[in-house]
């Protein structure tokens, strides 16, 4: 069992909901990202999703597009991000999941990347443009390196294909709460049904993401799901904050507390 699986198992034992927070690596610079990661880790985040900036983030909304563009202004690359994970891991044990687009990993070399990522202390991987159909080979490489490849699951589960995706996914299930790109509003009415249907097909924890932008929405999602994933909302808050470390800590405490009330 790796760090991610272990942490989620403990959360389930404690009947605690998972708070998964997304930030883009290198936004606005690497030192700030490390500070924010530490602040999140020290204030109760259960998993840090670290975005790999990409020139053309076609699955992301305007907020994450801006974050990606800011990071690329500093020429942040995958090697820098591996160093960041390694530095973070020297002092903190919070699970880390990288999220990005396949081209940057393909360019680095998938095997070399997974080897170095594992050595740096990484735990999971989400690739926005690598659906189950294209993941067969990469999936087995991830398994060899004990990295959880987390597939996204769409709002219409219940098919044979969904079962196959659930069987192939590792760590947790990333349930997309609605049709759209990251950072758009979500309609929570159908969410309970989706999550219930997924739970009948897997024992993995189910995290809901895409478009959570208020405490109420987070709480509503967490009523049926095992965890929530928040990205654009957090980045918007950090964009406006003078002290990003402080803002990240505050955001984390508020959300974690709100999730205990579910």
């Amino acid at each position: 069992m790796n760090r991610l699986e272990k942490h989620f198992t403990e959360l389930q034992k404690r009947h605690e909901k998972a708070l998964i927070l997304y930030i883009t690596a290198g936004d606005p610079d690497m030192a700030a990202t490390l500070n924010i990661m530490q602040a999140l880790a020290e204030n109760g985040v259960d998993c840090i999703e670290l975005g790999i900036p990409f020139s053309d983030p076609m699955a992301d909304g305007p907020v994450i597009q801006r974050a990606s563009a800011r990071a690329l202004l500093n020429n942040i690359n995958l090697r820098d991000i591996l160093s960041l994970v390694k530095t973070f891991r020297q002092t903190h044990q919070t699970p880390v999941v990288l999220m990005g687009y396949f081209n940057t990993i393909l360019h680095f070399g998938p095997e070399a990347f997974l080897h170095e990522y594992r050595a740096a202390g990484g735990d999971g991987l989400i690739i926005a443009d690598l659906p189950f159909e294209e993941g067969e080979h990469f999936e087995s490489l991830c398994r060899e390196h004990s990295i959880n490849l987390i597939y996204l699951v769409s709002p219409e589960p219940g098919t044979e294909r969904t079962r196959n995706i659930l069987a192939a996914t590792g760590g947790f299930v990333y349930c997309v709460s609605h049709y759209g790109i990251t950072g758009q509003h979500t309609d929570n009415n159908q969410l309970d049904n989706i999550v219930r249907s997924l739970k009948s097909m897997t024992t993995l924890p189910i995290a809901v993401g895409f478009g959570i932008s208020s405490v109420e929405q987070a709480q509503q999602a967490a009523r049926s799901a095992d965890g929530v994933i928040i990205g654009s909302w957090l980045i918007s808050e950090l964009e406006q904050a003078q002290d990003k470390k402080l803002a990240a800590a505050g955001f984390c405490i508020t959300l974690k507390e709100a999730l205990t009330l579910v």
Binding site: M58, A59, F102, A128, D129, L130, P131, F132, E133, E134, Y151, L152, V153, S154, R161, V176, Y179, G180
Partner: peptide, 9 residues
């Protein structure tokens, strides 16, 4: 191939 976000599959 089909390298697209899951929602399009």
């Amino acid at each position: 191939g089909q390298y697209v976000p899951e929602l399009l599959m």
